[in-house]
Design a protein around this nucleic acid. Structure first.
Lengths: 337, 337
DNA sequence: TTGTAGGCGTTATCAA
DNA sequence: TTGATAACGCCTACAA
């Protein structure tokens, strides 16, 4: 702020009172003469006084802003989460600083450092798919930075978390495919070390088991979700369909794989034939999916809300929080006629 | 920041030097004994000293952060713009605070107020479709807040601006339709008071004129882009097709209308028949559009880059900037065989 | 009811 | 080469 804005000092000078009196008036303090207060508030209003929040933050030792790290804001799941966060944060007087990791552990770390040196009061983070070393996060946590993990979480970090019931979501979608008569169901998923991968894989397996279908490792493909994810999905599909026993249906574990998979199946109908598609997605794209597609939609907005609420608990707790909560939300299965 | 972090004072105390010496060492000043500097830097490194940027901002009178206001981060055009902004901003040591107006003038105003009281150094803004009263923006500008307008701009605000050549984009798309033999081309666009509306309408008209086709007001529909835009587009389409002379093709002026229009045409093929679609869009959705669709894609990433560069000019200019620049970028026509 | 003084963490000026 | 001091804008004991 280089631009001229009126300060408490200015008001004090203009009205020939002390800075403290002005400060008191502005804060609705009790011990102030109504007349004085009126004068000050009028002047402040007239000259559009805005408190310098940097100064108060410095004084108060908190900034009333929280940091958010997601992999991509363009991903509809995350934009919905962010909407959820903001919806509650603003009401509570917090502002939200959004950053993107683009699935890069380095950028993730840089963002967190950046946010922290800019004095955020707390952090909401969904880890990048490639993050394995959590030392840097633990460091900040040890320094006392309150944080809540959501979506892609890690059990290494002891704190509140918000996730969806990935296992049940995957189970339901798989079961839906099975009920339609598909037996040979492939699974396209994220890297194996992620919790979402394990949980969704687990749901997939359970559904097969329950319906007495064999689990075949050869039908599972792990997609790195790197720079060129389209190519990765393409390769995965190729290798699936190069096998003797071709998949009749595919369950995709992530938004990106669901969409890429749909596009590829669409584009090369001759090659792949009529394959049923099921997948996790929060994209409005699903309107364009084939009518028989099965979509697992996560309650993204609510995830954001819950995550902020939990963070608020940490922020406002007077004592060290020892017992951490894990909020598990249900995913929604979308099946059209 | 309530959480414990080490300060210059702490280092000074620990090493029995003065705060100023520490500050100098940390800033790579010349007038310091190498040995002292080494000691300080080592200590700082060991105890993970991070400067409190709020304090330096307060001191320096600038925060090295800029505010961004767009209507929706989930809109791919804006997420691409934001990527462009960030790509340059980070390199220049600025951080970016993103807010969404959701096409509401009130939220837009609240966001700007909020950003300003949090001491941003400058503002990048795309106006909401419904914003008509710019008094509040002028107020901040008068106070000295540097700003750059992009995408949805207003000539009422005298400052740098970045836009695409809307007129040419619309012209090219329309001409493309005409060359394919379509004569009765409808135009679905934004509210008439927006510059993008006027410019795109102008390009549409010019193309008709050039190819000796009559311009028919009855083929133009203005869509408010409010809460329920889907319904608005639906109504617009209905009324277009209720006319005696049905459109053979439609040119949509905005991402939202292009997508809604596509979905509606798709869903009700019997009702609307085989209508050619052209439209402005930055969504990857266009992969799902019919093969003959014509897409006008804006260089969103570059818009963000240029906008930040111009803002940087304002931020770094020692003297009052009087002469303002308007960067006009070309849109890209995407036509698939 | 109001004013004075000190401090939040930095940086910059000036003196030593 | 280093240190003391003041200042950024705000808040708050404490004193008047």
């Amino acid at each position: 702020v280089r631009f001229d804005s009126i300060t408490i000092k200015d008001i004090a000078k203009a009205l020939a009172v002390s800075k403290s009196t002005v400060s008191r008036a502005l804060q609705n303090a009790a011990d102030i003469r109504p007349e004085t207060k009126r004068l000050i508030l009028e002047y402040a209003e007239k000259y559009k006084y805005r408190p310098n929040l940097m100064a108060s933050s410095l004084k108060e030792g908190r900034s009333y802003s929280i940091g958010v790290v997601v992999s991509e804001i363009a991903n509809p799941f995350f934009s919905q989460v962010i909407d959820g966060i903001e919806s509650i944060a603003y009401k509570n007087g917090y502002r939200v600083i959004i950053t993107q990791s683009r699935e890069s552990p380095e950028r993730e770390m840089i963002n967190v450092e950046h946010l922290c040196s800019h004095s955020i009061d707390g952090l909401l983070i969904s880890l990048s798919s490639a993050t394995t070393d959590l030392a840097y996060l633990k460091k900040w946590q040890a320094k006392g930075l309150p944080m809540v993990l959501f979506d892609k979480i890690s059990k290494e970090i002891k704190t509140h978390t918000v996730v969806v019931n990935n296992s049940v979501g995957a189970y339901d979608a798989t079961e839906c495919l099975i009920r339609r008569g598909y037996k040979n169901i492939a699974h396209l998923t994220a890297p194996p070390f992620l919790s979402i991968t394990r949980e969704r894989l687990h749901g997939y397996k359970e559904a097969l088991l329950r319906h007495s279908l064999p689990f075949d490792k050869g039908l599972v493909r792990y997609v790195q979700h790197g720079e060129n994810i389209e190519q990765e999905v393409k390769d995965a599909l190729q290798s699936l369909f190069d096998q003797a026993l071709k998949p009749e249906a595919i369950l995709c574990a992530t938004d990106r794989t669901t969409i890429s998979c749909h596009e590829l199946l669409e584009a090369q109908k001759e090659r792949f034939g009529d394959v049923a598609l099921a997948g996790f997605s929060n994209s409005s794209l699903f309107n364009h999916f084939p009518n028989n597609a099965v979509i697992v939609q996560q309650p993204a907005f609510e995830i954001g809300q819950r995550a902020f609420e939990l963070l608020l608990q940490l922020l406002e707790s007077k004592t060290e929080v020892e017992k951490f909560e894990t909020k598990v939300l249900a995913a929604k299965l979308i099946v059209r006629n």
